[in-house]
Design a protein around this nucleic acid. Structure first.
Lengths: 230, 230, 230, 230
DNA sequence: TATGAATGAGTATTCATTCAT
DNA sequence: GATGAATGAATACTCATTCAT
């Protein structure tokens, strides 16, 4: 990383109070609003704890390799009791994906609002998604990509509908880039970026030293918005 | 894709005889050599047909959701006969990953040799990997990413050892880029690129009209080597 | 059996109300105590019925030739349900061996207590073991010998630990014999006797006429305590 | 074993040149005769090596747990080739039992001929059987007891017919005992002895120090012929 | 005789799901 | 809402046996 110095400087100048990251007070308020509007389950409710536990396990071991007994044990109930809260194992997966999508959407919307400069707004999107992928804010986000095909077509449609707005935010922000930023088509840029960011789940350690998440976000930004086009 | 025209022009000028793609005669010779050296199984042998069928199914339905009965049916034998050629379902996965890696490595080496300009060589790498991901040349390549965690630690180590050379080619080629190409660190650039390319498997249709694979390769190249730095 | 008359006389004189055998009331109380202390499963509980059925089948057909389907059919459940109560087929075998050992130990202890003369006490041991071997009181006892090697080393250790006390009773009683009783070493005498008694399982019919179990016990006693040394 | 000294003395006095044991020249001649008469297979012939290997494995792991592949590997052929020499896995077991019985019979006959005193003759029987059980002379003998029930009724009858003479030798020798030797009935004495001797397979180490096989044989003799009745 | 690929019925075990209590 | 016993279909894997070469 021979040019990391100048990039770090850039980051410090632009995003003073946490690029794309929300203050923990905002974070909490956001969750509270989503819960009270019924968009996501209360994490402390039985259903919320069930979804949380399942999300953790699906992410770690995969949907197919996670047994309903594993999940029950994680929550502290017996396997039969799961089906009081959810019809199916698949419905559980679907519920996770829906809630994950809603939370990620709300977070990203909030994060963008705090930024005015298009580059900072895009950086905020990337940071939000990275935080989601690495479970810092939205537990279970990588499941959206890795376990997609475990969902029936019907359920895939449900999640896609929910996801549409999330993706349209991305497309809008990517559309604000100046010309000559590399991949011009926002749709294509988004897809390449989504793949790149999702895959960080398998190699990036957010707690590790060296490459921080902020640095990673800035580097990812460079793939669709090179430094030469500030 | 508002600036695709100028990019297409560039591509046509540089890589006249198929950027990164091998002639089918070369392709065949490559496979023959790998077979005769024992690196991969003869696709027409029982073991080769088994590996091929399993690769197809693992890619389509995932390792966990593919039963040995499915595989056997695909080959045209009974499920018990599978274990004549391979000890485990997991060993089958491992064998696929090893052979896929060897073939991809050989193809990429051959493709690079045909190019001299660093940018063309990197484009050849990307094209090779895209062709692999979309099953045009190396059936089963996406399994390497999607089913990685289904492998035991021991088998992961085996595949990693085999993969090392493949990745070092990437790092070397990425190291040939001029400064200011965005993500400077070759390792990081490779990881972001791998994620972006792998993910194309879930949305890009190579047979579809509009975005061709060549176009996709050039666009992917732009994420780590913008046009502004020819 | 030309000298059986004098032996019968001896038996009648010494052990009038059933040499070494417990009254059925005592028998029932013993089982109840072991159940309530958790040493053995309640024979009427699901687990108890499972263990009982498996013991019967393992004894008749052998561990390896008994399928879990056989066992399930015997209990009246489906094969999959077995693994609700026990982790493994082998763990089932282990559980049987442990419970069999505990019951045999308790019975022998109770039987010995009722006798004072060393010869009668040893005869009580022999009778107890014969009753166990022939399923009159401790169903599944022969399994301890015949299926021993089907147990993993780990489980063998568990059973051995449980069996130690049972065997030490034998050694103690065999140590009470007068000199010149043939095999002097209690350990060796026990081993020869165990083999002799175990093997009766394959030829002695307790219900048959002619040789009764009492007679058999007295004859077995003679191998380690000849009549000439009263 | 507090009286082992006097017993050892007794042994040395009576059976000077190996009680019950054959000289290795006699041993070899015996086998040669049996082979040439067709009673047993030539150990160096394909069938002989097959039977030998199977006997070893059946004895170590049990009939049910030994696969036909294990046997083939031991012989150095492939599993399919076994069925050129033998119709069934069970027929293989049956063949072993028949040959084992014939060899044991011949050995015991030869050993008895060398003794005149009834006690020595009986001791020779015991020693012969111990040698057989511990594989010193007749590999596979314990299988006769441990794997008996793996044989179909039909095959059991075949082996029983072959075994009859072997057992009648035992009965005859046990009938030569003086009165008051404990278990008077030769049939019963034989059965108890057979059990006791068979079981030594699971605890006696012929190579171990301390208790030698000769000592063990003498001790076993004491169970049916106490010292007090020389 | 030996090979090696294939068979097919069989094995233990798993697991999402149900339901009376 | 929770339990725990049971279901029943499915799973990976085994293995004696066959047979064309």
């Amino acid at each position: 990383m021979n040019n990391s110095k100048q990039q770090q400087k850039g980051r410090v100048v632009r995003g003073m109070v946490g690029v794309g990251q929300l203050k923990s007070a905002d974070e909490a308020r956001l969750v509270r609003e989503l819960v009270s509007s019924g968009s996501i389950s209360d994490p402390s409710s039985p259903r919320g704890r069930l979804i949380g536990a399942a999300a953790r396990l699906f992410q770690d071991k995969g949907f197919a390799l996670t047994t309903v007994r594993d999940i029950a044990a994680e929550v502290g109930i017996l396997s039969g009791s799961i089906f009081h809260h959810v019809k199916n194992k698949e419905e559980l997966l679907c519920a996770i994906m829906l809630e994950v999508t809603r939370l990620a959407k709300a977070r990203m919307t909030a994060a963008i609002e705090q930024q005015t400069h298009p580059r900072d707004r895009l950086l905020a999107c990337i940071t939000c998604e990275l935080e989601a992928i690495h479970g810092l804010a939205v537990p279970g986000f990588p499941i959206l990509v890795t376990e997609w095909r475990c969902l029936s077509a019907e359920n895939q449609a449900k999640v896609l509908a929910e996801r549409e707005q999330y993706e349209s935010i991305w497309l809008q922000e990517l559309g604000q880039r100046p010309p000559d930023c590399g991949v011009a088509d926002p749709q294509l840029a988004r897809r390449l970026l989504l793949g790149a960011l999702s895959h960080t789940h398998s190699w990036f350690k957010p707690r590790g030293r060296g490459l921080t998440m902020k640095m990673l976000a800035e580097q990812a930004l460079l793939t669709v918005w090179p430094n030469s086009h500030h």
